[in-house]
Amino acid sequence: MIDELKQVGPRIRAIRHSKGWTLEQLAAMAEMSPSTLSRLESGKRQASLELLIPLTRHLGVGLDSLVTPSVPDPRVRRPVIRRENHVIAPLTPEGSPVNTFKITYEPVAEIPEQRVHDGYEWLYVISGKLRLLLGDRDLVLTRGEAAEFDTRVPHALFAVGSRPAQVLSIFNRDGVRIHTHTAEE
């Protein structure tokens, strides 16, 4: 919270500049001395509600726009998950409302058994060829193709040919649970 408070003065200055107002003009509107406003903008004076309320009223902004929390680190740092014939790289933070993964399916010698579970899956093939067995359908998707399906329909996914298939997959919560957790979890 201390870091956010340090940004109040510079944010007031930036808004004042965007409106083309001088320090003296805004100070007069907010009924404070130009030196008080100058010290507030430079961080030499602590922000108080008594000072901020008249300023926000004249600047046309809410208090929350002056005390915006700092932006968290956007990088996703989660371990890769390895399964029988594929590697799952999480692309979204744990608990994210959207669950996106880059999955690399390795070629297989034997066709995997079709599975059924609660959930929904959306996928996009980045490279290689992906075979999707979905119910009685047998489909091969190539680079640039996408698919969407209800995972309560029996299905299996694996690479076709000698190269791996890389896929972007988006799951709902049920789909994430089945693909990223082991039987012991």
Rank of each mutant, 00 (worst) to 15 (best):
M1T: 13
M1I: 11
D3T: 10
E4D: 15
K6N: 15
G9S: 10
R16A: 05
K19H: 14
G20L: 13
A27T: 04
M29T: 06
L37K: 07
L40G: 13
E41L: 07
G43F: 06
G43W: 06
K44P: 06
R45Q: 15
Q46W: 08
S48V: 08
L49R: 10
E50V: 09
L55N: 02
T56R: 04
R57M: 11
H58V: 14
G60L: 03
G62D: 15
D64P: 02
T68A: 12
P69L: 07
P69N: 06
P72A: 14
R75K: 15
R75V: 12
R77N: 13
V80P: 04
R82T: 14
H86V: 09
A89M: 14
A89Q: 15
P93G: 08
P93C: 00
P93T: 07
E94H: 15
G95K: 03
G95N: 10
S96K: 03
S96Y: 06
N99Y: 00
T100Y: 08
K102H: 09
I103A: 01
E106A: 07
E106L: 13
P107R: 10
E110R: 12
E110T: 15
P112L: 02
E113P: 00
R115T: 15
H117F: 02
H117K: 03
Y120S: 08
E121Y: 04
E121N: 08
E121K: 07
Y124P: 08
Y124S: 14
I126Y: 04
S127D: 12
R131V: 09
L133W: 01
D138K: 03
L139D: 09
V140K: 06
T142W: 04
R143I: 07
A146I: 00
A147N: 09
F149G: 03
F149L: 01
D150W: 00
R152H: 12
R152L: 05
P154D: 05
H155Q: 06
H155W: 01
A156R: 03
V160T: 08
R163T: 11
P164H: 10
A165M: 05
Q166T: 13
Q166E: 15
V167S: 04
L168N: 05
S169C: 14
F171I: 00
F171V: 09
N172G: 03
G175N: 05
R177N: 09
I178Y: 12
H179C: 04
T180F: 00
H181F: 11
H181N: 15
A183N: 00
E184H: 14
